[in-house]
Amino acid sequence: MDKEHKGVDSLLLSDLVEVWETNSLTLRTIEHLTMFSIAIVLASIIGIFLGLFLYSRPKIAHPTLNLLNLVETIPDIPLLVLLLPIFGLGSGPTIVASVLYSLLPITRNTYTGLKEVDLKYVDIARAMGLSEKDILFKVRIPLSLPMIVGGLRIALVFTMGVVTLGGLIAAGGLGAALIAGIQLYKINTILVAGLWTGLLAVIFDGLAGIVEKRLQRRYGIW
C-alpha cells in the first residue's frame, strides 16, 4: 500500500484506525498489559517478601542485594535469550526477565524503607505497648510504604521495557507490532505502535507517580 509511504503528515484518523485494526493493536495491547500485570504482581509479591525476609536477616541483606545488583547490570536481550532454554519461547522468559529486573528496586526499597523508619515512632509504639509484630505491621510497614511504592514505580518502567522486547522472542504484545512494522517497513505501523507503546508506559508511570506523591503528602513528607 503506497499510502503508508507518504510519511508522517498523512497519518490521519482513518489511517490510524486502519493501522490499529490491521495490526490488531487491541489484542496486542491486551497481551502487553497481561504480561505486564503478571510480571508486576509476581515481582511485588516476591520483592516485598524478600525485602521483609532480608530485614529479619540483616546478615544476608548485603550479599543478596549485591547479587540482585549484578542481575541488574546484565543487558536485557542477553538475559531474555539465556532464559529461552529453560522457559521456551514466548511470554515465559519475558515475564521471568521482568521479574528478575524488578526484584532489585522493590526488594531494596522495602528493605531500606523498613530499616530506616524513624526510630522515634518505633520507640513510642513500644512504649504504648505494641508487640514487635504489631510494630512491624502497624508502624514499620505503613511508614515504608512511600519508599516501597517508589521501588514499584521503577519496576513498572523496567517491566514495560522488557515486555516490549518480548516481541523479539515471540511473546506477542506491542513489541510484536513494532517488529511487524520494522520488518515490512510500514512507517505508519511503526509510528502508531511506537507512540502508543511510549504513551502507555508514560501513563502507567504517571499514575504510579501520582500514588507516590499522594502517599508522601499524606504522610507529611513534603
Binding site: 522515634k120 513510642i124 509504639a125 512504649a127 511508614l143 507529611g220
Partner: peptide, 21 residues
C-alpha cells in the same frame, strides 16, 4: 512488658504521632 506498657501512659516532648494514621 507489653501488658505493663498498656497500663502506663507515656508522653514525650517529640510526641511521635504516627504520620500515616
Amino acid at each position: 512488658p507489653v501488658a505493663l506498657r498498656r497500663n502506663i501512659g507515656y508522653v514525650i516532648q517529640s510526641i511521635g504521632l504516627f504520620p500515616h494514621m
